[in-house]
């Protein structure tokens, strides 16, 4: 019974922490498209910074402008 509880606890913990568990659902060899330069939110920093500045001046809203790059470690 004690062992059953222990095994069950492991399963529950794996389930709860599933966000960081198991292996990545996209393998490194499947990331060719993500690594393409066109898949970058701010692929030309000098240009992105300028147009964000223009929009901030002409639009009253400010903050949360993008350009933080990709999430595949290939930017």
């Amino acid at each position: 019974m004690q062992d059953m509880k222990f095994l069950l606890s492991i399963l529950v913990m794996m389930f709860v922490l599933t966000g960081c568990s198991i292996k990545p659902w996209i393998e490194p060899y499947e990331r060719a498209n993500l690594a393409d330069p066109i898949m970058n939110f701010g692929r030309d920093p000098v240009s992105s910074a300028y147009i964000n500045h223009v929009f901030e001046a002409r639009e009253g809203a400010r903050g949360a402008e993008g350009g933080s790059g990709g999430g595949c470690g290939c930017n």
């Binding site: 996209i26 903050g63 990709g70 999430g71």
Partner: peptide
Amino acid sequence: LSQVITKNLLIGLNFETI
């Protein structure tokens, strides 16, 4: 937060308080 969803989809979420 920047997140790869699929091998073709990337999303970003940004909050900013000034």
